Amino acid sequence: MNFNFTEIITAFMVLFAVIDIIGNIPIVIDLRKKSGHIQSGKASLIAGFIMIIFLFLGKSLLNFIGVDVNSFAVAGSFILFFIALEMTLGITLYKDDGSAMTATVFPLAFPLIAGPGSLTTLLSLRAEFSIENIIVAVLCNVVVIYIVLKTSSKIERLIGPNGITIIRKIFGVILLAIAVKLFTQNIKALFI
């Protein structure tokens, strides 16, 4: 085991910014109103399970379809870039198709929490960090997600709509910087 506190914190912060559970509180509250109840524990566990499985099988899946991790990371940097634009500019690029079996699994656990951005980020992190540090970062994020989902109404009252908007924009800028870094690091590898 090669646990590194700096890697864990960095991976945690990157995933936290991509998942943006604080910025998604308004969506969580809206889902709660529509469905009546969201199982916070179940949603957190399913999202964590999807992320950890993708962490291990994502690279094999990409190899199977003939895509290398650097290409996937460059494509992922575009996804992160557009998510960051949504967060900072307050625009909507992703359109929900409206079909949902249950609010807990879809769209909350997937694709809101464990979506294209977080899955792409996991593979990108895997190229830079030890896998055990990424797993710890994912588990820490799952705990934070559970706490936020469980207390979303209280958080919304405490922070207020302006506070949520400010937090969303700050994490959007951080995510934008991460997307640029991801792009520049991996685009070089494609031309070597």
Results as ranks from 00 to 15, higher is better:
T6F: 14
T10F: 09
L15G: 03
A17Q: 04
I27H: 15
I27R: 14
I27N: 15
L31H: 00
K34W: 07
G36Q: 00
G36C: 01
Q39R: 14
K42D: 08
L45M: 13
A47L: 05
G48P: 05
I53E: 09
F54V: 06
L55C: 03
L55K: 00
K59G: 06
L61Y: 01
F64C: 05
G66S: 03
N70Q: 14
S71A: 08
A73Q: 01
F78I: 08
F78R: 04
I79Q: 04
F82H: 09
M87I: 11
M87A: 14
L93A: 03
Y94P: 04
S99R: 13
A100Q: 13
M101G: 12
M101T: 12
T102V: 07
T104Q: 01
T104F: 02
F106N: 07
P107M: 00
A109H: 03
F110N: 15
F110K: 13
P116W: 05
L119W: 01
R126W: 14
A127I: 09
I131D: 07
I131Y: 06
E132C: 11
I134V: 13
I135K: 08
A137R: 05
A137N: 15
V138K: 02
K150S: 10
K150F: 10
K150M: 11
T151Q: 04
S153Q: 15
G160C: 10
P161A: 13
G163F: 02
G163S: 04
G163Q: 02
I164L: 14
I164S: 11
T165A: 15
K169S: 08
I170D: 02
L175V: 04
L175A: 10
L176Q: 03
A177H: 11
A177L: 14
I178K: 08
K181W: 14
F183H: 06
K188V: 15
I192M: 14
I192R: 12
